[in-house]
Computed example of a mutant assay.
Amino acid sequence: MKITAVKPFVLNAGIFVKVETDSGIYGMGEAGMKRRGRAISEVVNSMASDLIGEDPFRTEHLWQVMFRGGFFPGGGVQTSAVSAVDIALWDIKGKALGVPVYELLGGRVRDRVACYPHNGDPHRIEDLLASCRKSQDAGWKFVRWGLVDPKGKELLEPSRAVRYGIEQVRAVREELGEEIEILVDLHTRLDPAASIQFCRGVEPYRPFFVEDPIRSESA
């Protein structure tokens, strides 16, 4: 089996890649980055010549070719493109072997997973508390919201957002008690110093996790 075409599609719902083969089997993949669709599409097109004619079963080799093939390391746009193609290659392998992809990655581990809701507009603590109470009353074990600046939705002033975020976590913990699990997404909007300040501030209120505390280039 050989790869015959690599086709990106930029849609409102996301950025997708179709990898076709000479056997008639094709795979579909999706880029995690929802923006920069044209840029991701062009990266996929630029990698196509390295992929066409190759064996799609060589997923690790082709990942190395795509990710390490250039002199300079890639950023988010390149890794999103590589990810979409890689998912499509695994899709081909699963279809060709007649098994779900999870069987190729070690098999099923559990029968169920925990889920969580996204809670209301967090710009006003009263609204956030009402949304979290509603989730708890509905039987949810988790509540989740994102870091915001209480003074506006367009810009985020880090110090003010950190203080407000700590106050939100404190208020939710005191309102909902110890059984609820609190999840907060910082959306990579803080530098390391501000993120550390936030994490130390919420530590007494035992958040279940703090998501995306810093940007990847700061890690």
Rank of each mutant, 00 (worst) to 15 (best):
V109A: 14
V43G: 03
V44E: 02
M66L: 04
E103W: 00
D91L: 10
G76E: 04
T79D: 03
D55I: 03
P117C: 12
G106P: 08
V65C: 03
A88F: 01
W63R: 10
V99F: 02
L62M: 06
V43Y: 08
S49E: 14
R58F: 06
D50T: 03
R110N: 09
V101W: 01
V113A: 13
V65K: 12
H61S: 12
L89S: 06
R112A: 15
V113P: 01
K93G: 02
I40R: 08
T59I: 15
Y102L: 04
H61I: 14
V65G: 05
K34F: 11
R108G: 14
F71Q: 01
G106Q: 14
G32S: 06
P117K: 10
L104I: 01
L97N: 06
S46T: 07
K93C: 02
F67N: 13
C115Y: 11
F57G: 00
C115R: 07
C115S: 14
A114H: 13
G69F: 08
K95H: 11
Q78E: 12
I87L: 15
T79K: 07
P73S: 05
I40V: 15
R36M: 12
W90M: 05
K95G: 11
M66N: 01
P100N: 11
A84N: 06
D111E: 15
G32D: 05
I52C: 07
R58W: 02
I92C: 02
L51D: 11
A39F: 00
N45L: 15
K34P: 00
V65H: 08
G74C: 00
L105D: 09
G74E: 00
Q64Y: 02
R35N: 03
R36D: 12
A88I: 04
Y102W: 13
V65D: 06
P100C: 13
V77G: 09
L62F: 00
G37C: 13
G29V: 06
P117S: 10
A96H: 04
R38D: 04
V65R: 05
Q78I: 08
E60R: 10
R58G: 01
A114V: 10
R108A: 13
Y102N: 09
V85D: 01
G29Y: 08
R36S: 13
G69H: 10
M66P: 03
S49I: 09
W90R: 02
V113D: 10
